[in-house]
Design a protein around this nucleic acid. Sequence first.
DNA 1: CTCGTAGTACGTCGAATGTCAAACTACGGC
DNA 2: GCCGTAGTTTGACATTCGACGTACTACGAG
Lengths: 120, 120
Amino acid sequence: MTPAATAAGTRELPHPTRAEIRLEGVLHALSDPVRLSIVRDLAADSEALFACSHFDLPVTKSTTTHHFRVLRESGVVRQTYRGTAKMNGLRRDDLDALFPGLLDALLAAAARQAAAVRSG
Amino acid sequence: MTPAATAAGTRELPHPTRAEIRLEGVLHALSDPVRLSIVRDLAADSEALFACSHFDLPVTKSTTTHHFRVLRESGVVRQTYRGTAKMNGLRRDDLDALFPGLLDALLAAAARQAAAVRSG
DNA sequence: CTCGTAGTACGTCGAATGTCAAACTACGGC
DNA sequence: GCCGTAGTTTGACATTCGACGTACTACGAG
């Protein structure tokens, strides 16, 4: 069934093209603490791909799916299937090309705030 | 009536302290197109204070009030009364201290996106 | 084929968001 | 004191959001 989807053993997921990524959408995606923490984890090892299940999130599976979809549809992450796992990677190249310095500034800001919270 | 509020001819408005400003709140505030455009206008003349009525926004007065409140409560702008007008200024000093480089990266990103949209 | 694991889809729920209109308050000028 | 301008408040409304549970599909291992 659904032969096209199973063609190469990987279902395809819709991603916005680089030109379709909107700043407002990126900011909205990152304005949620759960999603911001996902992106921070992803950025810590920038080339790595992590499965959804690798993140230890304080929400259920279905909510996790929802958050990853928001991140994908806003253009922040790229998702690909690998067997039964869905691998997630930051779209750093696209984001850096569209908004130079923004991702680094955001990550630095998040790190700073996390440090402030820990010590305060 | 309300003598405290009228004391110096200026009602006081609640602002978060620098330490209370949350990155998520700032990102959420800027993820709305109307508010992002306000901040861009404000940043164009960084030291200037503009009255709410100086912005030409595609929404009604009450919605404008709402958006300015979101910006104020998230710590993005500082609002002070001057007679019957409410003056708005970017809290650039606080934002730069908390999240160095973030505001500039955001403004640059917004400018880039606006330019891309204009040129097709 | 069967089972377990990874993730999706769907429906629901409560809270927040963006918008408006209408009635109201505050200040400055006449 | 009165009026007009600037902005607020309130209440309504539709939409979206974040969260959940349950039922489902997809893949790999055995």
